[in-house]
Design a protein around this nucleic acid. Structure first.
Lengths: 205, 205
DNA sequence: TAACAAACCTACCGAGTACTCGGTATCGGG
DNA sequence: CCCGATACCGAGTACTCGGTAGGTTTGTTA
């Protein structure tokens, strides 16, 4: 039986194949970036011909978009399943995200590589990267504002600026960590930052 | 007349041409990354044929290395000409660097794009990126240690961790700023971080 | 001014790129 | 069982890529 969400868009075998393709494409984009990834190689690893691959995703750009959408969706699920963090709890939840990231370097590499590649001219992930940062900043800033409203935070805090800085630190640490995992204890460094931030944020420390 | 440093390695016209090529290649690498840059386009903009370009730089990788070396050298000159910052003065000097960067987005883009592209497999700038981070971290950490030795800083500071975090913040802010310059006031955000850091570092604030 | 290297050029190569065309086999619902 | 959609594949398109071979022009120097 077919549910209404299945827009009679293919067979089960096709769905499985698409899933496999997305899995492999995620690895390839993470390892070589968008420009460095070739459809031929993705197709080969997925066990079909290159035109066969393009049957499922009509262009390379469409494949990239599908990969990014799947990743965003999975990350959302994982984070919100974890718990719905309210005010300042969001910050400790972010620490847990970074700890999880340190166990999945391939996914971290995907984001680092693609977001930076996106600052080049005419890159297909440009809008995605911009929107993602905007969303992340708004998300953290809102949590900070809610914390301020609940009296968890001393007044006068610039929520937007603090949010941008938290996210910048996460990103910057990821780059250093990917290049030299032994030299950089990413979770510890991020946790230290959040701890100091919390110490200065409390109304009367 | 030829000085002894000119290792009879070409004519003056050739030197000028090489300089022009490096200037253009810097722009191209910044705008399209290493993989997205084509020698044909660099050659065209420099006003010679593509084999003519390869006469001066025998491979694409060699051209990249030359660009990076020139940039590192120029940046060193600029920074150390500014002043020899000792202990905590280095931090305020870094703020000035960020302010200067915010006026030269093309050079910021060069570093952001290439360092992140370098975390992909078999990238020619990998060693350069690793070495650069190591150097930057050691540089900032040393300054912090010297400040601690001079009593400018309360004891118990983890110089290496603090250095890594400062640099991570600089990098992360650059990415957000390049994607959305209007939304991110990069110098202000970095200055705020340094100010807070200085406040917590002083022996008895 | 002769000799020689530097600074190019045209022509070309093999490999790789994303993508298309025109088919065929296979699967699932009526 | 049949029919249409799906899931492919082989062959090829038009192009770009970095790099090479071999020659000619230009500039410097002895």
């Amino acid at each position: 039986m077919r549910t209404s969400t299945d827009r009679r868009r293919g067979y089960a075998s096709g769905d499985a194949r698409r899933e496999r393709i997305l899995h492999i494409a995620t690895q390839e984009f993470a390892e070589h970036g968008y420009r460095g990834t070739s459809l031929a190689r993705v197709a080969e690893r997925a066990g079909l011909s290159q035109p066969g691959l393009l049957h499922h995703f009509r262009t390379k750009e469409q494949l990239l978009v599908a990969v990014l959408e799947l990743r965003d969706q999975r990350d959302m699920e994982r984070f919100f399943a974890d718990e719905a963090a309210g005010g300042l709890d969001l910050l400790t939840a972010l620490v847990r995200v970074v700890e999880h990231n340190s166990r999945t370097p391939e996914l971290v590499r995907l984001f680092v590589v693609l977001t930076s590649e996106a600052v080049t001219a005419d890159h297909p992930a440009q809008d995605w990267a911009r929107a993602r940062y905007e969303r992340l900043r708004a998300w953290v800033a809102d949590a900070l504002r809610r914390a301020a409203g609940a009296g968890e935070v001393r007044p006068g805090l610039d929520a937007d600026a603090t949010a941008a800085r938290i996210i910048a630190l996460m990103d910057g640490l990821q780059t250093q960590w990917l290049l030299d995992p032994d030299a950089i204890d990413m979770p510890a460094l991020f946790r230290a930052h959040i701890d100091e931030l919390l110490a200065t944020l409390r109304p009367r420390a």
